[in-house]
Design a protein around this nucleic acid. Structure first.
Lengths: 338, 338
DNA sequence: GCTCTGATCCGAAACGTTTCGGATTTTCCG
DNA sequence: CGGAAAATCCGAAACGTTTCGGATCAGAGC
């Protein structure tokens, strides 16, 4: 059968206890003994049974990623995040468990589910800002890291970029190119990042001495189609616009498509800036100027904070704002001088 | 603390054994007793501890996805597959574990690692065809499903599309549009799909009465950059080409870029067909005609076969060839009549 | 010589579940 | 009514690990 501590004990002539302590680096075992045991363990290809380990220590070396929005699986957002979490998890010898849920239960149920699946903590992605569960979550004694939803507690934190800053960087960039009438295609209001990016848009406009008119803002839903609709609507009612900032690359791609459909040349007639820096930025023509957020690092940092919490009950989790950087490409250019 | 079988037993007045059997639907427990116990369990919010369950039953309700090629995390390939696996896993009340490994060990080591992490079986993605581990894998008594690498055994199978057919569909499409000189930008030879698609290219040419010249084939590496190089090289040495088939969408995007750089109009001067049907097909201009393979279903089917193997030691795993379908878009058109 | 200390090892209990084998009670049938 | 069969329940062992509380022994200090 499989090789267990008992097998190693029998072969090496020591007791199960000693073998365990030797392999775990405890101090009360002779150095020669330890070496002999390690030797035998290696020969026998011994791996500790994580399940048994977990059962007794109750320290679950497992973290989970709870994804509430299945749509995100269609873009590379989630894949890069998973990639980052995985690297961090293997570095700490943790396992990474994945799951989704359609309908949400109470915070307590969610945590019960996690606990009994053996999770030590969870990263939750795709929560809506109006989720009632959110308020309860902060009080729970279960390590949690949220993605792009603000929450701070003794056992909970979140990671995001400074979306206000990111959006204002986009506006700074456009204003620097001479644009004064800048439209904004936002994501849906249930996402926290939408609120933040909207504020960033406003602040950016003001900082550059421009007046953000309410009519310059269109609320989309992060889909490409909504980007198209946004561009159409904004330009129909405000033909004076010379630039559009979209709160996601996908929507920006829709904007580009629609503008070209309307016979406008980007960036000669009108500039476009997106948000995220997904691969599609370089596939689209013209290539898309955007605000980059590094999703791989999102995953790493989230996993890092989570693991720190799991390993140390007293660890005070830190909120991390990752940097957002402007990536200039071909879709933005100087304002056309009439 | 946490509520266990013992808690329920004490509260309900029955023994741990009976509670366990009641909750698991065994027949030797009175229907009234069962109801009473279920009632108590519900009141107490009892969830069985999966870890303890796993330890004793040894039936691990956990499957894993082993990803060997980190690059795939950059495209949506893997995300969709994960999504499909997840749905199938939750449907069967299985957990989904994720991990990668940089360097490969022996098949035995790999399986040991999996087993001791509590995995009941694994989906392996990104294996190279020349991987020495591959030969050993077929003999192992560990449920395995490979993605896009052929392997059949009592405890192993693979899922893929019929890549020969897929590629020949692309050629049929182009030949049907009147093209006779069709170039081929392939992926690297270490991928099984490359060999298959190459054969499909040849077969497609022959079926349509065309002679596949060796010089019409360029070996890339699935990257966009290699698609650009491929287009450049092929057209420099064979300017008579009126169509190019690329073995992935990403390479096709590179081909498109290069062609436009060379002043050629797609599809007026030259047609392009890709493979995969990733989202970028619709972001690129002109939108990309391609051979669609449904990665979400890849994941579902892979998980399905795997779970069947885990649940039933006698289950004979089936190889599944998913359908490939041509998705005509704007990048392919009739051959230009001179 | 006697206790004390430190080094080294081990037995047994515990984690929460399933299951084997048996115990007890009830029902059924000739 | 006797006994077999069925229904219902339970004790104890097992899964593989960690850890608590010793046990043993050598050497040190007096």
């Amino acid at each position: 059968m499989s090789v267990t501590l008992k097998t190693v004990a029998k072969k090496s002539g020591y007791s199960v206890t000693t073998v365990s302590r030797a392999l775990n680096g405890h101090s009360d075992v002779n150095v020669e003994t330890r070496q002999k045991i390690e030797q035998v363990a290696r020969e026998l290809h011994y791996y500790p049974n994580r399940v048994a380990q977990q059962l007794v220590t109750k320290k679950a070396n497992v973290i989970g990623l709870y994804s509430l929005d299945r749509e995100t699986f269609k873009n590379q957002f989630i894949a890069l995040m998973i990639s980052g979490m995985m690297d961090e998890a293997t570095r700490h010898d943790f396992n990474l468990l994945l799951f989704t849920t359609q309908r949400l239960q109470t915070a307590q149920d969610l945590i019960n589910q996690c606990t009994h699946r053996g999770l030590g903590g969870a990263v939750i992605s795709g929560l809506r800002i109006d989720e009632p569960l959110l308020d309860d979550l902060v009080g729970m004694d279960f390590p949690t890291v949220l993605i792009d939803v603000p929450l701070q507690g003794p056992r909970a934190t979140y990671v995001s970029v400074d979306n206000v800053l990111g959006a204002s960087q986009a506006i700074d960039h456009l204003a620097g190119l001479g644009h004064r009438q800048i439209g904004f295609v936002n994501g849906h209001g249930a996402a926290w990042v939408s609120q933040e990016r909207h504020e960033g848009y406003q602040r950016g406009m003001q900082q550059n001495g421009l007046s953000p008119q309410p009519g310059y803002v269109f609320e989309g839903d992060f889909s490409k189609e909504s980007g198209r609709r946004g561009a159409e609507r904004l330009l129909k009612s405000h033909p004076e616009l010379t630039a559009i900032f979209a709160a996601s690359d996908l929507m920006a791609a829709g904007v580009l498509e629609q503008l070209q459909l309307m016979g406008l040349d980007v960036p000669r007639d009108i500039s476009v800036v997106g948000f995220d820096d997904q691969d599609l930025c370089t596939h689209v023509t013209p290539s898309l100027t955007t605000i980059r957020q590094d999703m791989y690092t999102f995953g790493r940092v989230a996993a890092q904070e989570l693991i720190a919490m799991v390993n140390d009950a007293d660890y005070m989790p830190q909120h991390v704002d990752l940097p957002s950087v402007l990536v200039p490409r071909a879709s933005s250019g100087p304002r056309r001088t009439v």
